[in-house]
Computed example of a mutant assay.
Amino acid sequence: MVQPQGAEEDPPQSSDSPPSQSKNAFTFNKDIVPPKKPPPSKGYAHLFKYVVVGDSGSGKTALVRRYSKDEFVLTRDYTIGVDFDIKTVPISNGDEVKLQIWDTAGQERYRTITTSYYRGAQGIIIVYDVNNQGSYFNIKQWMQEVRRYCNDDCKIVIVGSKSDLQTEGAEVWGKDKVKLLLDLDEDSEDWESVGVTGYFMVSAKTGERVEEVFECLTQALVTERLNARNPLRAGGTIKLGKGKAGGAEEKKKKKGCC
């Protein structure tokens, strides 16, 4: 078995404590039995740590839930501190990739806690609300924070969430405006030149383009790692298969990239 590199092992969980610190994990209602944490995946060849950041209420938790559990729950509860999820994804060479996905709180009072989770991250997902001007302008602040606390080779993806909430006549802070904010030429798709691996506008409610966000990071990281191990195959790519959330096959099919 190939030993995973570059990510921390799963945090220890005691038998009498919940697997996360988020209200969204259904641990604060005594009438509801907390869900069991899925068993750890065995035999994976790669282990990657992803940290999801962004303003409070930007849609981070909904994004993670849609990807890891293929579900959408409308809630006004905010994440407290950090929440944690796991997903295992097979790739075309027969190996499996294990993803640690950390959903962080966006409130300023939790910032000293959440910044500690940047350590060892290979991928950062910056989420903002395409219908919220303030959330849009704070992208640069999150970029600065990521660059301050993460390794130089950490990959960043920017996600504009809640695309399903666009209303006629309302201004949408979408892809073109993000390019303007990051001083990227309007006609350019060279996101790497501004330190970004990719940009996606998504809807956690409908599932539109959610898988692409994580596939973009995972494919880039796996391909980069394998190319580094074998320079003769440099330029090749690894395709991802269907993922497993907690050992269950994911029901949602991959959407086409546009």
Rank of each mutant, 00 (worst) to 15 (best):
I86N: 15
Q144S: 12
V172P: 11
S56R: 02
Y67A: 01
D164H: 05
R65G: 14
D152Q: 13
K60F: 03
T75D: 07
N151I: 10
I86G: 09
Y136R: 06
V51K: 02
D153C: 01
S161N: 15
Y110W: 04
D95P: 00
E171G: 05
K98Q: 10
E96V: 08
W142M: 04
K49N: 05
Y128N: 00
K179F: 06
S68L: 09
G169Y: 08
A62H: 02
S41V: 11
G54C: 09
K49Y: 07
K175A: 15
L99Q: 08
E145R: 01
K42C: 11
V52C: 07
D129H: 09
L165E: 13
I80H: 12
N138H: 05
P90I: 13
V127I: 07
T79C: 11
D85S: 15
E145S: 13
R147K: 14
V130T: 14
A45Q: 15
S92E: 09
V97P: 05
S58Q: 05
D185C: 10
I126F: 02
G174Q: 12
L99S: 03
Y78Q: 02
S92W: 13
D185L: 08
T167R: 13
M143P: 04
L74D: 14
Y67T: 02
D176N: 13
V97A: 13
G81A: 12
A105E: 04
T115S: 10
T115I: 12
I156L: 01
I91L: 08
H46Y: 15
Q107E: 04
S58P: 06
T79H: 03
V130H: 06
A45F: 00
R65F: 11
L181H: 11
T115D: 14
S58I: 00
T61N: 01
R66F: 10
Y44W: 11
A121C: 09
G174W: 13
E171H: 14
I113V: 15
Y67V: 02
V89I: 15
R76Y: 11
V159D: 05
L63Y: 06
V73Q: 10
I113P: 08
G57F: 00
